[in-house]
Write a protein that binds this DNA or RNA. Structure first.
Lengths: 224, 224
DNA sequence: CGGGGTGTCGTACCTGGGTATGAGGCCCGG
DNA sequence: CCGGGCCTCATACCCAGGTACGACACCCCG
């Protein structure tokens, strides 16, 4: 199975270069090109590539918007290519936007040609790949935001019994004591007892603070 | 400047293989080896390498603990090598632990030899590099946790007046009505009025649900 | 100028939620 | 078999928080 690729970049020379480079590979076919995001989407819909090489900065419609459109297509469109973002300059803030949108990778154009080729293969295989500098930033970001599942709360979470944890989670879902009791088939007073212990153990004042704790400790997460 | 590397792995053959591979590079010197984490730390302190290749699973002291020790040394030890984690099997949960601890990379041992070599160079340069499957997971994780500031609630948030939003945020920080009143220099009753309106507008029952809304809408975020 | 939105506060009421104390049953490990 | 942790529930008390109704002062816009 050859890998079907399209190249979206506003510079014709860049497109030609990449196309030549990739076409030379026996397992890669360049099946289309486009000079801006809008046309990139059209070509993407028409040729149904496995991988889209997408420049970030482009006239008409930037790579980010185009990537979003391809990765989260309107109803009726079933094709969902992998998107590999490319940028000339060092990592701009678009990186995070692109990754959020579901891009499979992010490379600098000054990377060795071999990297681009292997990146296409990696992405086509469903894996992901980033430029080293991007990787570093992502890791740093990752480590910064979760310096060990909150040493503070999370460790203290271990002090909770299973039942208490269960109750805490329901609190964090917005249930009243009555509803929790019903859900767990308990007397309301029992729920109160559990909550009392949770608040005491975690040094919290009320259920509102308990909700905060649940989110901060990762017991529950936004969007879950 | 040659890159000084040590190899920590419990399998002698693996060490020998990597050493041979890396030593063949003119810009890389293998200056030490160790069969377990404990000795790895000793060798690391003694030889002061630029990069430590560290197997994850090892007897005596696993790679994770050893990496942590090297990356966050006790007072008095100034040397801080880069750590590149290696694992035989597919990505275990240790990945996140390693990245949190400050590792610069994570590779599978079945990666092409060229990858290992370039990885060492990348890491030595202060950048980072991950196995594609790890990258994919990290990106997925990243995208999952910040799927672009919530559209739904966020829109409803627009129905709130500035003051109401302000009060909501303080609720989400765990403050009591009294504390909010003090903070905003208001009568407690005024705070209650605002809260009442917030709850009505957002169709919430109590401040606990308000906290949930604040997190889900992105008004406040974990770790912020 | 008149009205609507916002912000402020008062009085009054009621209940859900948190606290205190005690107690019975279950199960595990020493 | 006994002690301790966990889960369960009851009775009783108190108050922060939420609701209802009304009021006054701005400010801006039609």
């Amino acid at each position: 199975m050859t890998i079907r690729v399209i190249i979206v970049d506003d510079q014709a020379m860049v497109r030609a270069g990449f196309a030549a480079l990739l076409s030379a590979q026996s397992d890669i076919d360049v099946v289309g090109e486009a000079p801006d995001g809008r046309q990139g989407i059209e070509v993407g819909r028409a040729t149904r590539p496995d991988v889209v090489l997408m420049d970030v900065r482009m006239p008409e419609m930037d790579g980010l918007a185009a990537a979003r459109e391809l990765l989260d297509p309107p109803p009726g469109v079933v094709h969902r290519p992998k998107v590999l973002m490319l940028t000339t300059f060092d990592v701009d803030d678009y990186v995070y936007e692109a990754l959020r949108a579901g891009a499979s990778g992010f490379l600098l154009k000054d990377a060795p040609p071999a990297d681009l080729i292997s990146a296409v293969r990696v992405v086509a295989a469903g894996e992901a790949l980033l430029a080293p500098s991007v990787t570093r930033r992502l890791i740093a970001d990752f480590a910064r935001q979760r310096p060990a599942p909150r040493k503070d709360p999370s460790l203290r979470l271990n002090g909770l019994t299973p039942r208490e944890t269960e109750v805490l989670e329901l609190i964090a879902r917005g249930l009243s004591n009555q509803e929790i009791a019903a859900r767990l088939v308990l007397a309301e007073q029992t729920v109160k007892t559990h909550i009392g212990r949770v608040l005491a153990k975690l040094d919290l004042r009320d259920r509102a603070q308990a909700v905060i704790f649940a989110y901060e400790s990762g017991l529950v997460s936004p969007g879950a």
